[in-house]
């Protein structure tokens, strides 16, 4: 029965040892350890939440970036298309302007040519008239009965005029 009888000395020392152990650990160890572990658990939880949020944000940002990129691409295509159109317009306009100008120049030239022609025609008529008068004068002056000889003379003068011109 000795086994089931608590020994006084052992009870005493066990009590003392346990209380010392309790006060030492309760004062300097357990609260700190528990606090540290809970802080770490907290931090890990927060880290996971932060990570998930960051991941969501990242995917959002990616989607946004893709959207922006697509927009930029569209804009770029628009700008290019517009630029091409503008260039074509410019060329077209320039070409139109040029042809109008050319037409004007041509018309002016034609007008002046016409004028010159009319002038020269007038001149020519004057000259021809004069010439005819001269020819007639000469013909009359010779007074030769031969018609053929007269005709040849006229021809000769006319030819002279032609070569002058």
């Amino acid at each position: 029965m000795e086994l089931f009888t608590p020994e006084f000395g052992l009870v005493f020392w066990m009590f003392v040892a346990f209380l010392c152990l309790y006060f030492i650990l309760a004062k300097w160890a357990w609260p700190f350890i528990i606090k540290s572990m809970e802080e770490r658990a907290d931090k890990i939880d927060k880290g996971v939440a932060y990570y998930q949020e960051a991941e969501a944000r990242l995917s959002n940002a990616k989607a946004e970036a893709d959207k922006l990129l697509a927009e930029a691409r569209n804009e770029q295509a628009d700008i290019l298309r517009e630029a091409a159109k503008m260039r074509n317009d410019l060329i077209e306009k320039a070409r139109g302007d040029a042809s109008i100008e050319a037409k004007k120049v041509t018309e002016a030239a034609q007008v002046s040519i016409e004028q010159a022609r009319k002038e020269s025609e007038k001149q020519l008529r004057l000259e021809v008239g004069e010439l005819a008068l001269q020819i007639a004068e000469k013909v009359i002056r010779r007074n030769i009965a031969n018609d053929d000889a007269q005709k040849a003379l006229v021809d000769q003068y006319l030819r002279e005029v032609e070569t002058k011109n």
Partner: peptide, 17 residues
């Protein structure tokens, strides 16, 4: 007597502590 001896078990308890 009142026995406060450091017996084998008491020493064991202290070592464990």
């Amino acid at each position: 007597p009142w026995d406060f001896s450091i017996t084998k078990n008491v020493a064991g308890i202290l070592i464990a502590a």
